[in-house]
Design a protein around this nucleic acid. Structure first.
Lengths: 203, 203
DNA sequence: GTCTATACGCCGATAGAC
DNA sequence: GTCTATCGGCGTATAGAC
């Protein structure tokens, strides 16, 4: 059972299966259309009660999922920033990660891109204000400072760049494009990067 | 006509107030976090039962809302296509409309851009396959045919173009940008248009 | 034709037997 | 520590009085 979330392995395997099942169901049907009965069933657990051995409430399942996803993303982004220097390289790393996740772990990307998280986790920060996404904004700010990126409002550059990237991935996730994300990766990267890059590179 | 006007008008007015209240609540809290009690209260209706004079179910309220919004959008787009010929002008018309709606009717734009409609209206077509949005795609296809727009996959051009437009509007709706939509309109239009236009015009 | 009262189901959550 | 049984409540929907 491959797992994209680096969860606490020390805890029981059952807890992990609950999280995996919940992620899938939440992404497919939505949080409110998913009952604990559905989750127990999909996780191969016989009774709903068993879930309460691991989680205090349905919301806490979603919370743990969200934290795991953001933690994992955070680690990946730290990695990218450590391994490369130029903003273009770092952004490219983030884009490659997002495209890979879209093909390999679509439920995680649905969680990040399309689910209305605030509706069922009202106490969570808006996703753009989380550590992982502020780091991405910092990459763009740094790119503007060192003239890799055009001198425009960083928030707007961020909006345009990930408007292209994320909308492409959302179309793939919604099955509105024919191929998988990988098929659009380099073309979409170029389109998005040229949009904000100081010097339009060759197309 | 006059003596009956009060009754009928107040009846249809009440129906309208239910729709307006529901739109606001759905957009703010989400469909599943909104009860019929909430709607009745916000609509200035004393009892939940009164809602059933106008709608057979909660879902049918959302359905009617969705249809009204799409119908209205459809009319506006027909109008735009009738008044202008060039794809650039027609797309500009659509963009202007979207930006205007974002400032003037943010709940409508939330319905169109961010709400997970399929979660509470599972029988509705995906929004991109509705009449209004296929017409927008046709504008792009026609622009490719007559060489206003670069010769790329129309679906991809659509994805890139409205990736920029819609993400900007989503940021405004989520209060992640400082100003209102109007403040970003012309700059964002240029960015999106130059992305797909055959000849990059001056910035 | 508006409101009171209520039915009914589903779901989240808990208690307690074993 | 796993399952049976059940509770309590909310929310949709309806029946029927006036």
């Amino acid at each position: 059972m491959e797992q994209e979330l680096n969860t606490t392995q020390s805890k029981s395997e059952q807890q992990n299966e609950i999280l995996v099942a919940a992620l899938k169901l939440f992404a497919e049907k939505g949080y409110f259309n998913t009952s604990l009965t559905d989750i127990a069933e999909a996780a191969g657990i016989k009774t709903v009660s068993a879930i309460y051995q691991h989680f205090g409430s349905k919301q806490s399942i979603a919370n743990k999922l969200y934290e795991n996803i953001l933690d994992s993303l955070n680690v990946s982004i730290d990695d990218i920033r450590r391994r490369t220097q130029k903003s273009s390289e770092q952004l490219r790393g983030v884009v490659d990660l997002f495209f890979k996740l879209t093909d390999d772990a679509p439920y995680i990307m649905k969680f990040l891109l399309v689910m209305p998280i605030h509706e069922f986790l009202p106490d969570q920060k808006p996703i753009l204000q989380t550590s992982a996404f502020t780091k991405i904004l910092k990459i763009i700010q740094s790119g503007i400072r060192n003239s890799e990126i055009r001198n425009i409002d960083p928030a707007l550059a961020n909006t345009y760049f990930f408007g292209i990237i994320n909308n492409t991935l959302m179309m793939v996730l919604a099955d509105e494009l024919d191929k998988n994300a990988e098929a659009y990766r380099s073309q979409t990267w170029l389109a998005a990067w040229n949009m904000i890059a100081k010097k339009s590179s060759v197309f």
